[in-house]
Design a protein around this nucleic acid. Sequence first.
DNA 1: TATTGTTATACTCTATAACTATA
DNA 2: TATAGTTATAGAGTATAACAATA
Lengths: 160, 160
Amino acid sequence: MSSASKPEPQRSVTLATFLPYRLNVLATVVSGGLGRIYGERFGIGIPEWRVLATIGEFKRITAKAIGQHSEMGKVKISRAAASLEERGFIQREANVDDLREMFLTLTPAGQSVYDEIVPLALNYAAQLTADLSPDEEATFGMLLDRLLARARKEFDGSEP
Amino acid sequence: MSSASKPEPQRSVTLATFLPYRLNVLATVVSGGLGRIYGERFGIGIPEWRVLATIGEFKRITAKAIGQHSEMGKVKISRAAASLEERGFIQREANVDDLREMFLTLTPAGQSVYDEIVPLALNYAAQLTADLSPDEEATFGMLLDRLLARARKEFDGSEP
DNA sequence: TATTGTTATACTCTATAACTATA
DNA sequence: TATAGTTATAGAGTATAACAATA
């Protein structure tokens, strides 16, 4: 037998190597950088950006469906949508088949803002991964998805 | 020549594949799960956990040094430290060589809480990566570091 | 003058529940 | 009864600046 008797349980957490911490730091820095792009130029925050991006992607969509595609609860979406409507970036129209629902669409002004943000956001994401080879980028994305799936199973603190 | 003339610039952002969004979602779910561990049992939040963890790691450290090791500004640290002191988890003692500074240390109660949290936190992190091979885990960590380095260079929205 | 740390203020984000109107 | 969405409220977290004490 080797000198390794029992693996010593670790008695401290090294923050710098602790995955939840590092993920949080990276996400914060990345979100902050991206937030400047749409925050400074268009005065919108993360929830508003997500709603705008989801409508931009699906063109005509209910708040509930936005929630399913953007990891946000109905409260956050409702407020973000109200704020975007105030600024004239989106419109609401009732769904005649179910009057509880409202379809959200971009106004021309909203489409224009969206069209301005998209290349900036894509460029930002591209800059972020500029040091990675395409393979590394794909690997990172794949591992990220697996971690996310695991985290959801393990414990999903997300909104109902 | 092939039919590929110019690569079409992308006209929309697909949220589900957009890296800043995915990082944010993963970090939020992971932070939320971990936050339950120290939140529900010990009534502390993320800034308090980071301060506790940093003191636990370095044993005796100033607020400024905590800031350098934990990505937090002095204001957040000051408040987290005040809260931890109120609960009797940490102590402050002046640095006689520079009275502007205060060394922070864990009290026996704080050490005991820390000793309870450490294995829970390590286990949480281990569960998170349970689906990854050691190689994959190392690769993910390496890529995460490179992304973080790039994000900081590209734009560091962190506190001064 | 510059630095460590605290306090004040205001703003964003989040979580919960109560409410409405429709189904 | 259940669902889509809104409103109310309170709690975290964050950013900024102003401040006190010390260097």
